[in-house]
């Protein structure tokens, strides 16, 4: 199998299979998680729940008081690489084209040069976050194979995508194929690893917001 065949497979059947497993996995996992349900709280609420769930979804995106100072790498590194990933995934012209072809939805792209810069910054941030995971006692203590694995699986698509655009190391065709394959790996493992937090994060924050708002505490 040469590079072009690999690329053809990767962006054809490969992407189909990966997207299939991704959709299947996410739907299955979300139903599995949220169908467990929870009992209604019989204690009279201090205040009406209102939009407390949504508030917490938003509020938890901002570092709590004092935390930025105690864990600057986690917060700044985390912010940079999450925002970077979002920009790269959703605002890079070729990615928008792909999404448009998949869904019919389309929006303006950011200039390629800007995305290029964002990519480099994102890669650096991810490396910094990895080093932090190795250095910080609590982080290192908590880390399992899954943490290293998911880091690599997230890092690879960014790296290979950047290398493909920059024409580094390998011929473009092969690099593009590797990029797409790495994205497919990411899609396949996402529902079954901690990466599912991309979805459940909203549910978790929402629950925390509702449960605590019942007692009158904005969390």
């Amino acid at each position: 199998m040469d590079a072009l065949e690999l690329l053809t497979w990767a962006r054809g059947p490969g992407l189909n299979i990966a997207l299939g497993i991704f959709v299947l996995g996410v739907v299955w996992r979300l139903i599995e998680i949220y169908s467990l349900g929870r009992r209604t709280d019989l204690a009279p609420a201090r205040q009406h729940a209102g939009a407390s769930g949504l508030h917490t979804v938003l509020r938890r995106s901002v570092p709590p008081p004092g935390m930025l100072r105690s864990s600057p790498v986690s917060y700044i590194g985390g912010f940079v690489f999450h925002i970077g990933l979002a920009l790269i995934v959703f605002l890079f012209a070729p990615h928008i084209l792909l999404i448009r072809d998949l869904t019919g939805l389309s929006w303006p792209a950011l200039p390629s040069q800007f995305i290029d810069m964002v990519t480099v910054v994102t890669l650096v941030a991810m490396v910094v976050v990895l080093v932090d995971r190795i250095n910080k006692p609590a982080k290192r203590f908590l880390s399992t194979f899954g943490d290293w694995f998911t880091w690599a699986v997230t890092f690879l698509p960014v790296l290979t995508g950047w290398m493909a655009v920059q024409h580094l190391l390998l011929p473009y065709t092969l690099m593009l194929a590797l990029h797409i394959l790495s994205v497919e790996l990411l899609l396949v493992v996402l529902p079954f690893t901690k990466l599912i937090h991309a979805f459940t994060l909203f549910g978790s924050r929402w629950y925390a917001g509702r449960i605590n708002a019942h007692k009158g505490v904005p969390v």
Binding site: R29, E32, I33, Y34, S35, L36, G37, R38, R39, M67, S70, S71, S74, G78, K136, A138, K139, F141, L142, S143, T144, D147, K194, I196, H197, T200, L201, G203, S204, Y207, A208, I211
Partner: peptide, 19 residues
């Protein structure tokens, strides 16, 4: 229950709770 399931599924082992 569902919150427990959601919480465990969301944890990324960032270790910030330690702080």
């Amino acid at each position: 229950d569902a919150p427990i399931a959601s919480y465990f599924s969301s944890c990324v082992h960032c270790g910030l709770c330690a702080e």
